[in-house]
Design a protein around this nucleic acid. Structure first.
Lengths: 189, 189
DNA sequence: TTGATTATTTGACCTATATCAAACTCTTTC
DNA sequence: GAAAGAGTTTGATATAGGTCAAATAATCAA
């Protein structure tokens, strides 16, 4: 079966016709490691879904340092939700961490589908709502004051990140230096 | 004119009929200072809008300390967006900072209206999108590493908060202690 | 108005984490 | 499979901001 269909299925029943329409709107693209998927400040043209690979999103802070905001893996949507619907500039960059296969649909295709099948308005709302509540959770984790506790919470909630992502990216994601992260992991702090 | 109508007007044209319908769905409520508007963990029953007053939202962190997540003033919606649509438990508490007048509509009324006037699906999406992009901005501010810079950014972006909210609440909002905030303000740090 | 409560400031001290520097280890690539 | 380049660890040192305690200032309720 199609992984994007599987994903949508967790939110709604999909009819045969809807399924065919959705599959008809999907394109694929391959990306090598360290390839830019979208750029901060650009208007996002695609809503993507990861078939294989991994992606990180980041921005450059006031000192020019990269600050990672999220990591995405297979079977997850890769959509800048805060800017895709209303076509406002994206707040972060997205770049592959590994060779990555994506499927995607354009803004026009996406919202054209939504007009043809208005029941999916609710699905989209559902997805957005889930995304929002994940963001709330994430903010709480990021606000934990001790570096060690932030690391341990990440280890508990999203161990895959620790297994798959180089520590230097995880460090900025957890708002600590690489050295502190290393010491925290070695339980030397 | 009605402040909630004014607010919605910034996102769409409103017909006479729609306006009458909307106004028909609005209820009012008065709250004294330090009154709980919604409780963390509860299912949010109301989408509110502040006519007069101020509200803060917070949760209790791992050490039991209150951590403020937002401040809301007149002419702003007070809706737990991450939980209202899908009726999942709210992630924070909301409590008045001053005597406050709200108008509100229930979840049923809200989504009933949306079914009668499907064009407002887009309005809702627009509002959510704006909210999401504000959240992204806010996370960036909260991740600025120097306490003084976080304070100065808040002073620049939302000076009303500093004018109206007691420092102890602002301190936790900015992820610093009350003492540090006091010193930062006195430029002694 | 006054006493009580709440909010804010100031001081002294301490500690978690940043910074800087260097070593070590693991991956690519030619 | 050697050399180059990432990625990670370790050590020494510095410092921003936390903690605890007390003084002052502002606000509130009777």
């Amino acid at each position: 079966m199609h992984p994007a269909i599987d994903f949508i299925s967790t939110f709604t029943e999909i009819s045969e016709q809807e399924m065919r329409t959705i599959i008809g709107l999907l394109h694929t693209s391959s990306h090598k490691k360290n390839e830019l998927i979208y750029r901060q400040g650009s208007i996002p043209k695609r809503a993507s879904f990861i078939i294989k690979g991994a992606v990180r999103s980041f921005y450059n802070d006031e000192n020019g340092n990269e600050r990672n905001t999220a990591f995405y893996f297979e079977n997850q949507p890769l959509i800048p939700f805060d800017s895709f619907a209303e076509q406002i500039p994206v707040s972060v960059n997205a770049i592959t961490l590994e060779p990555t296969e994506l499927i995607w649909t354009s803004h026009n295709e996406f919202f054209g589908f939504l007009e043809s099948f208005p029941k999916y308005e609710k699905v989209l709302r559902n997805i957005l709502s889930k995304y929002l509540s994940m963001q709330s959770e994430k903010m709480k984790i990021q606000r934990i004051s001790s570096a060690r506790d932030r690391y341990e919470m990440l280890n508990k909630m999203q161990p895959e990140i620790i297994k798959r992502v180089p520590l230097k990216y995880i460090a900025s994601y957890l708002d600590m230096t690489l050295e502190t992260l290393s010491r925290v992991r070695a339980a030397k702090l």
